[in-house]
Amino acid sequence: MIELAGVTKVYRKGRVEVPALRGADLRIAEGEHVALVGPSGAGKSTLLYLMGLMEEPTSGRVALFGEDVSNLGDTARSHLRGRTIGFVFQAFNLIPQLKAWQNVALPLRYQRVSKRVQKERALAMLERVGLAERAEHYPAELSGGEEQRVAVARAMVIRPRLVLADEPTGNLDSQSGRAVLDLLEEARSDGATLVVVTHDPAVAARAERVVRVVDGRVQPD
């Protein structure tokens, strides 16, 4: 359901071109739990962002759910991302001006869901991640573990087909990290595919398949 073929990605920094991916090929089946591992700067996060339609490839083909998305316009990409993909970031990336439930409801806002339904679904999701009582709190009033659980709730609220997590436990203690991974794996029970970028062997060990990225290329299994 995810297919990357001959994908390259080159960033420009002034006049300098920095290649992040140099022809990556990868297939991930629906419902699979995959860990992307490799040294820093290998291109793991870039690969993840390409799958999440957050980046456009310089060349090559990216297909999601059987559809070539390499050349989709911004509106179509945003539409697809908002309805089918949930993101979890290392730095949580909650919006500080919004309360916990408002952060969770954010993706629904762009799906033109009514405010009442937004709040109902956000509160239900917060209850599922064990933070119902923290719904009215701002991110600054939450612990790191709680912030990441809110971020997971935000990723899950759309019932995603694909969950992408970039070092989701990187900023957490081991107990909080385990709780977050448990929550992410729960998503799979709803049929979602889970792709996790990690440096942590313990996190990688929980995946069904470990994909190694080195120097912008995917190593054969």
Binding site: G52, M54, D74, T75, R77, S78, H79, R81, G82, R83, F87, N93, L94, I95, P96, Q97, L106, P107, Y110, Q111, R154, I158
Partner: peptide, 16 residues
């Protein structure tokens, strides 16, 4: 900029 990036990540199009 980060907040706007988050909004984009959760599905906001440029026009949104």
């Amino acid at each position: 900029i980060r907040e706007l990036g988050i909004r984009r990540a959760v599905g906001a199009a440029r026009r949104d």
